[in-house]
Nucleic acid binder design. Structure first.
Lengths: 127, 127
DNA sequence: TCTTGACTTAGAGTTAACTCCAGAGTTTAT
DNA sequence: ATAAACTCTGGAGTTAACTCTAAGTCAAGA
């Protein structure tokens, strides 16, 4: 699969795909004899994982570390377990913050909906 | 309340507090006669709101727009309602992405825990 | 009053994560 | 076989959101 096809399949720019590989966020991609990227199933798996992690907001740095550990063999399994557990923790924290903010937004939206419907502001404290 | 006290109360650096005010993410803070910031209750409310929105990952730009609208009076209430509704939507989307990634992490973590306990890798596909 | 520490602004610097560009090599269609 | 389209690398540029610095002003204690 060419970089163009992968780019379209995952909606990630070609530049970003090259960037991910360059910084080590995914392992080196399979190449043709002339040096052109030819993504195999395993490469696609890494791209998909990278996209998933990034879309949740996990730092590129964490994926780089994870990829590095996987390249070093089975002895790094405990380290990988710890890394993933830490990332899970940050996602749970982030989710909690989002929930707090969502409640805040819901409250405000409710107030504004009443204001729009009735033409009257029903509160006077902080906006 | 001085900027130092506000900084400690909300765990936001003084530089960031000045930055938020400078770009309009919070309205101008009350000042003493000599021009030193003296945060009132209403100012603290804005700081707290700003911190809440930012911690959830909402862009500074959105808060700037919201603050601008509130300064323009009641005629902007429908616009504010729309802005908040859009921000809520992006938070819900972000939360969904986090949930997807959490499932992925939970799966991997489960596998690695087994591998650590038994000393045997029980899978062979993408890492 | 002096000095020490907190505060001010304007503007430059930093970091993460891309994004773009130039110049060169490769593949495809006519 | 030659143009058009695609890909390559190295490196520079961009954006968001801070973060720091310099040079000056202000305030509280000895």
């Amino acid at each position: 699969m060419t970089i163009k096809e992968v780019s379209e399949k995952f909606d990630i720019s070609q530049d970003t795909l090259r960037y991910y590989e360059r910084v080590g966020m995914i392992p080196p991609v399979t190449r043709t004899a002339s040096g052109i990227r030819d993504y195999q199933e395993k490469d696609l798996g890494w791209v998909e994982l990278a996209k998933c992690m990034r879309s949740a907001g996990l730092p590129v740095e964490a994926m780089i570390e994870y990829v590095k550990l996987t390249q070093e063999g089975d002895s790094t399994i405990p380290a990988r377990l710890q890394l993933l557990t830490e990332q899970r923790e940050t996602l749970l924290e982030q989710k909690a913050k989002i929930d707090t903010t969502l409640e805040r937004l819901n409250y405000k939206i409710g107030r504004y909906e009443i204001a729009v419907k009735t033409g009257v502001l029903t509160w006077n404290d902080e906006e």
